[in-house]
Simulated assay, not measured.
Amino acid sequence: MMRILLFLATNLAVLLIASITLSLVGFNGFMAANGLDLDLKQLLIYCAVFGFAGSLFSLFISKWMAKMSTGTEIITQPRTSHEQWLLQTVEQLSQQAGIRMPEVGIFPAYEANAFATGWNKNDALVAVSQGLLERFSPDEVRAVLAHEIGHVANGDMVTLSLIQGVVNTFVMFFARIIGNFVDKVIFKNEEGNGIAFMVATIIAELVLGILATIIVMWFSRWREYRADAAGAQLASPRAMISALEHLRAEQDVPVHMPDSMTAFGINSAGKSILAGLFMSHPPLEERIATLQRMG
């Protein structure tokens, strides 16, 4: 509940700040002077500000949100030999990938999972679950860490946020064009924005938002294959395949990764063809088969 409230509060704050900014610089009136036609240039600017505001703000606070929502404890001074090994392994993999050493953490969860996040590849966070550390072999843990380092080195967090911003922009843009068409052409309203504009815009945003999510999730699945390839290169193909097979063996165990972090985890699964369109990760069977073909 706290994570949901924080998410809603964050987005509300972004919308308020963006709205005030737009009003101050004069971009709040995207309707033309006669109230009938859209000023498409001004509308696009309006939508871009709102569309990118949320995704970029979320990106900049992603490490803080990840630590808070998962209960990740950052390893500053290793207290055990396992924590020392974890730090040394991430440092070695980071050097191989040519990035700065990220923060390393462990989050308290029974399910085997891991994630990487951060606003750029030289200021990232890599975290693994306690369950993964306890049940996976050192080679498998190293492969999972290599997969997450691959996400960081590929700049996946930044790219996904930018794509989400672009998608948000055009969903808002075309939804308002549709709303204006319905209001002016179908309902013959010539006195500014009527109720039909607002209703049609909301419905259009919902429909276009669903279609846009399919595009974003397709990219998210594609980047998982790239991260798997990076994991195989930084660790070894055998270890990466073994780690994915171990994840598949535990797939019946419920995954409780917070919604905001699911796209950045290593383990996620869907149950149907329709659900597959909205999956952030490809099926583990396909990822394993891809690595085997590469090998």
Results as ranks from 00 to 15, higher is better:
215 I>S: 04
253 V>H: 12
126 V>E: 02
41 K>M: 10
59 L>A: 11
176 R>Y: 04
192 G>S: 09
268 S>K: 04
75 I>M: 06
52 F>L: 07
219 F>N: 06
59 L>G: 02
125 L>T: 05
143 A>S: 10
128 V>P: 00
253 V>Y: 14
211 L>Y: 05
30 F>Y: 13
176 R>C: 04
67 K>I: 11
80 T>A: 09
147 H>G: 10
158 V>L: 15
105 G>H: 09
7 F>Y: 13
199 V>G: 03
126 V>C: 10
256 H>A: 14
277 L>N: 12
82 H>F: 07
208 L>H: 00
53 A>R: 00
265 G>E: 03
105 G>S: 11
187 F>L: 13
7 F>L: 14
167 V>Q: 00
280 S>V: 02
295 G>W: 05
245 E>V: 05
57 F>V: 15
172 M>N: 03
5 L>N: 00
267 N>E: 02
268 S>Q: 09
16 L>S: 07
125 L>F: 08
190 E>Y: 06
101 M>S: 13
96 Q>M: 12
234 L>Y: 15
126 V>H: 11
18 A>I: 09
292 Q>W: 03
120 N>Y: 08
47 C>M: 07
144 V>S: 09
39 D>P: 02
45 I>G: 00
100 R>Q: 14
87 L>Q: 14
42 Q>V: 07
81 S>V: 06
113 N>T: 06
264 F>I: 02
20 I>T: 11
233 Q>L: 12
3 R>L: 06
212 A>M: 04
177 I>T: 03
10 T>L: 14
281 H>P: 05
167 V>S: 08
220 S>M: 05
162 L>C: 10
80 T>Q: 13
275 A>D: 15
209 G>H: 06
271 K>W: 11
52 F>H: 01
84 Q>F: 07
155 G>T: 02
190 E>V: 12
263 A>C: 09
274 L>W: 15
263 A>H: 09
5 L>H: 09
250 E>T: 08
196 A>V: 10
66 A>Q: 02
114 A>W: 00
75 I>D: 01
119 W>F: 15
289 A>P: 02
27 F>V: 11
60 F>L: 14
55 S>P: 15
260 S>V: 14
218 W>E: 08
70 T>R: 04
97 A>I: 12
281 H>L: 06
1 M>K: 11
203 I>L: 15
244 L>N: 03
203 I>K: 07
291 L>G: 05
88 Q>N: 15
99 I>H: 03
22 L>Y: 10
160 L>W: 00
108 P>C: 05
26 G>N: 11
187 F>I: 11
197 F>T: 03
95 Q>M: 11
63 K>S: 08
92 Q>L: 12
186 I>V: 14
39 D>W: 01
166 V>R: 01
155 G>S: 04
124 A>D: 04
115 F>V: 01
176 R>Q: 15
114 A>G: 04
295 G>I: 10
